[in-house]
């Protein structure tokens, strides 16, 4: 793949880096990342992926932009209220970098379509705000052998980890099953400081960029937590669960399924 003079200039700060160089930038340009959830995490993540020149970015989200989203979902603007998030975010990415292809996947991702969707991409980024979606993404990515970045944020705290097929634990190794709906405050009920979404979403983008360019160490087998109040990162080593129902040697989960949405399907 040839790099135009415009590409050399646009990506010059990447190409200068010995660890990325022309080869790494070419790999980014050939890379395909699916961002599920065009919200607080997905907005900054997708914007940095587009800026980095990731060649193909898929956006999957079934929601429309709401005024209360704008405190943290920076891919959308006030004028976008009421519009589908995939449309609003896609336009932001295309304006940022016309050289990347943005695929719009409107509608909530379900067990019926997620395997076909993730198969089209090299890396998946979970930017959703509810446990059923997180387990759906995990199970689909494990079954499809697709690496993905998990993240979650609430109030002043965030966490993320990266699944690499066959090389470390999956999300279900950490958390066997979704918590009961009544135990879960969603982002709609619990507050979240907007800039925290930027911190964690950008860390997810970094994981995708490093995976595509083939550099550094990923958060495989490590859960990174961040507390914005104390400004402290903490790393928790997480082992593979030997009898994991989806990534273990004798799996009982053989296809993705839709869990109860009551956890935070309120008002949807």
């Amino acid at each position: 793949m040839g790099l135009s003079d415009g590409d050399l200039e646009r990506y010059s700060r990447h190409i200068i880096l010995r660890e990325i160089g022309v080869g790494g930038q070419r790999r980014l340009l050939a890379g395909k990342v699916l961002v599920i959830g065009a919200g607080g995490l997905g907005s900054p993540a997708a914007m940095y992926l587009a800026a980095a020149g990731v060649g193909e970015i898929g956006l999957a989200d079934g929601d429309e932009v709401d005024l209360s989203n704008l405190q943290r979902q920076i891919a959308h603007s006030t004028a976008d209220i009421g519009r589908p998030k995939v449309q609003s975010a896609a336009e932001t990415l295309e304006a940022l970098n016309p050289g990347v292809r943005v695929n719009r996947h409107p509608g909530r991702v379900t067990a019926a379509d997620i395997l076909d969707l993730v198969a089209r991409y090299d890396f998946v980024l979970d930017g959703t705000d509810n446990f059923p979606a997180k387990f759906l993404i995990n199970d689909a990515c494990v079954i499809a052998g697709k690496p993905f970045s998990h993240a979650g944020i609430i109030r002043f705290r965030g966490q993320l980890t990266t699944y690499l097929p066959g090389r470390g634990p999956c999300y279900r190794c950490l958390f066997v099953q979704p918590p009961p709906p009544e135990a879960v405050p969603s982002c709609r009920q619990a507050g979240v400081v907007g800039a925290l979404a930027g911190v964690i979403g950008c860390l997810q983008a970094l994981e995708a960029i490093k995976f595509l360019a083939g550099l550094g160490g990923l958060l495989c087998g490590r859960l990174l937590t961040f507390d914005a109040l104390s400004m402290a990162f903490r790393e928790i080593r997480v082992p593979v669960r030997e009898n994991c129902a989806v990534c273990g040697p004798d799996p009982t989960i053989l296809r993705p399924s839709d869990h109860e949405m009551a956890a935070c399907g309120l008002g949807e």
């Binding site: 790099l3 050399l8 200039e9 190409i15 200068i16 160089g21 022309v22 080869g23």
Partner: peptide, 13 residues
């Protein structure tokens, strides 16, 4: 700068 370096680096690659 820094395109001087970028162009040289690309040519060397």
């Amino acid at each position: 700068c820094p395109l001087t370096f970028v162009k040289a680096k690309v040519a060397l690659e």
